[in-house]
Simulated assay, not measured.
Amino acid sequence: MHSRSLLSPLARAALLLALLLATAPAMAWGRLGHRLVAQLAWDGMTPAARAAALDLLQDEPDPSLAGVANWADELRANDPGLGRRSASWHYVNLAEDGCHYDVARDCPRGNCVVAAIEAQAAILADPARPREDRVKALKFVVHFVGDVHQPLHAGFAHDKGGNTVQVNLDGRGSNLHALWDSGLLEQAGRDEAQWLEHLRGLPLRQGAGLGPSDWAEASCRIVRSPGFYPGRAKIDEEYGLQWSATASRQLRLGGEHLARVLNGALGG
């Protein structure tokens, strides 16, 4: 568990409040979190997988995993048609069913994050597919593996992954999903480089046999943990201090698992 920020309690609370109020419609981890997962994945990729990824990304404005990590969330503005078609690929609702993934029940027609990771990884791994399809698949995989490690992307359907759970700090409102997307990360007072240093210091956690459905079930179990849902709408910085280690661990796992997917798909 990381140490408390050097910011004063008042300053930390004010920073968290600002982030809660500024958060747009919820997207897993926000821009910072997705970039962190991508950079952690790069650390664990083989030279062959890195070379293949760079080749696919060479025409991107920022030809790096971190540079495309938020592409899938930006589709709603940049490519509304694809954004609508892929909207359900960012999450899977498991919490009502005890966090057990059942493909027929939870992922009809492949429209959930578990199936999306599997499908896009298969496209990425197929050299016979058009280059454009493989580039899109790489960008989807980078994003969706991050998504599945944000606990509320495998949570309850009835509250839309915490989006309808209102939280209140110092008289101003937001929602639980927004808090997990960005608020917990920003509360720590770290910039991107400091976050990377912190996360790289955490141990690798899980075995090689696990896949997207296991990651979703693990995220769901966090959602169902005691205290994850605040007991009242009015919260303070203590909630963030309590759950920051969990958020850090999920980011670390996201990077580890993304590296594994990309190594497998790109010949690593």
Score class of each variant (00 low, 15 high):
Gln194Ser: 01
Lys160Thr: 12
Gly162Ala: 10
Arg190Gly: 00
Leu176Val: 02
Ala154Gln: 01
Glu192Trp: 10
Gln194Phe: 00
Glu192His: 11
Gly201Met: 02
Ala188Asn: 00
Leu184Cys: 10
Asn163Met: 15
Gln166Lys: 12
Asp181Ile: 12
Ser174Tyr: 13
Trp195Ile: 03
Asn168Pro: 00
Asp159Gly: 02
Gln187Ser: 10
Val167Cys: 08
His153Trp: 15
Asp181Ala: 10
His158Leu: 09
Arg172Tyr: 15
Arg200Ser: 06
Arg172Glu: 13
His177Ala: 15
Glu197Asp: 03
Gly162Glu: 08
Arg172Thr: 09
Gln194Glu: 12
Gly155Met: 02
Gly173Met: 07
Leu152Glu: 13
Glu197Tyr: 00
Leu169Glu: 04
Gly173Glu: 12
His153Gly: 07
Asn163Tyr: 08
Asn163Cys: 09
Pro151Phe: 00
Asn175Cys: 10
Ala157Asn: 13
Asp170Cys: 14
Glu197Ile: 01
Arg190Ser: 04
Ala193Arg: 13
Gln166Tyr: 01
His198Phe: 07
Leu204Pro: 05
Leu179Gly: 03
Arg205Cys: 02
Asp159Leu: 05
Val165Leu: 06
Ala178Leu: 14
Gln166Gly: 03
Pro203His: 14
Gly162Gln: 06
Trp180Tyr: 12
Phe156Thr: 06
Gly173Gln: 12
Gly201Thr: 04
Ala178Val: 02
Arg200Pro: 04
Leu185Glu: 08
Asn175Leu: 10
Gly162Ser: 07
Gln187Ala: 14
Leu199His: 10
Gln166His: 04
His198Arg: 08
